[in-house]
Design a protein around this nucleic acid. Structure first.
Length: 336
DNA sequence: CAGCCGTGGTT
DNA sequence: TAACCAAGGCT
């Protein structure tokens, strides 16, 4: 089998200044043809729009982010506009994206951007990293995609592509290793613009072709250079540890936040711990037909879990501790 | 650093 | 259907 570039040659990988290779060309050319048209990839998209997208995309699929992102950018076109509202508004409009603490952190990031950066999303990895909810991946991604900087962007897609293409493994290690970072740095083209395109292209390749479950190797632009394919696509050597869900505090917290999002005014604490007792003329207990985004349905879902009151107490304490909820005069509400 | 933090579509 | 998985971050 012919190797289309010298990248698989260890001598190349050990070099500092990596020149563009045929591999770079193939992947970026594929990206030019096949990239999905996503709103945050529009050249007119602001750095703020890109930051919001990156945070929303943390552990959340693109298709679910799209409508919420559009609503956010319409409602809060700049960090200043989000920062001028209570944090609870961010949580409320987070919808069902999951991990609602991200909304809280994005709101805090907006405030920091206003107070410390004059309302302009910072452009360096270091300044971005100091923002709440912005870690190594998001900082590099925003610096690269919003400001055209040459950064080593490593997300789960890029890790998987590298693991297969170069290491011949089905999946990357459970946690990002120093060796992986080093390899990603060495693969990064020297040219700023090309490096940005390379980062985006490899990420897209992992998201669309080199997927975790059923990779479409037949459509891959670098299939003939892939060590994993060459090895006969061996199965993963480690079993990913699944995360429990049913019966966990997380499940109760999630249902509880859904109730707070759906509520237009503070709710009596007892309503979150016991059943939906007094909703005025409100719904009878156990009603779920109203849907998860309406108060009766959200309350029905929370109490339909049949979790012990102690677990409700623990979940609520966690929410209060995390700042996802506040208590005023015995009533619970989203943060102000 | 291992565990925790949501949600819903897919297999 | 239970399990897996999705542009991670924080403690």
């Amino acid at each position: 089998m012919t190797t289309p570039s010298g990248v698989r040659d260890p001598a190349r990988l050990s070099g500092r200044a990596t020149p563009p290779t045929l591999l770079h060309h193939r992947v970026t050319a594929w990206f030019s043809e096949e990239a999905r048209e996503l709103p945050w990839r529009d050249p007119a998209c602001s750095p703020w729009g890109i930051l919001v997208s990156e945070v929303m995309l943390q552990q959340t699929p693109v298709v679910r982010v799209l409508p919420v992102w559009s609503e956010w950018l319409e409602r809060w076109p700049t960090p200043g506009e989000l920062a001028s509202e209570p944090a609870g508004a961010a949580v409320r409009h987070w919808g069902r994206l999951g991990y609602p603490r991200r909304a809280l952190r994005l709101h805090a990031a907006a405030s920091a951007i206003v107070l410390q950066h004059g309302g302009v999303v910072p452009s360096t990895r270091e300044d971005l990293l100091a923002l709440p909810g912005v870690g190594a991946y998001t900082a590099a991604a925003v610096a690269a995609f919003a400001y055209g900087r040459r950064e080593t962007v490593v997300d789960t897609n890029i890790r998987r592509v590298h693991a297969r293409l170069f290491a011949g493994s089905a999946l990357p290690a459970p946690a990002l290793t120093a060796a992986e970072m080093r390899r990603a740095e060495e693969l990064l083209p020297e040219d700023d613009a090309l490096s940005v395109r390379w980062n985006a292209a490899v990420m897209e390749l992992g998201a669309v072709i080199c997927t975790a479950r059923a990779p479409a190797c037949g459509s891959c632009p670098v299939q003939d250079a892939c060590a994993w394919v060459a090895a006969g696509r061996p199965a993963p050597d480690h079993v990913p540890k699944g995360q429990a869900w049913a019966g966990t505090d997380r499940q109760v917290r999630g249902a509880m936040v859904a109730v707070l999002r759906a509520a237009e005014s503070p709710l009596p604490r007892a309503l979150l711990i016991r059943g939906p007792l007094d909703l005025g003329s409100g719904p009878p207990p156990g009603i779920t037909s109203a849907g998860p985004d309406q108060l009766p349905g959200a309350l029905g879902a929370l109490h339909g879990l049949q979790a012990p009151a102690e677990q409700h107490e623990r979940a609520l304490a966690g929410l209060l501790s995390d700042g996802l909820a506040e208590e005023t005069d015995g009533s619970i509400h989203l943060p102000s």
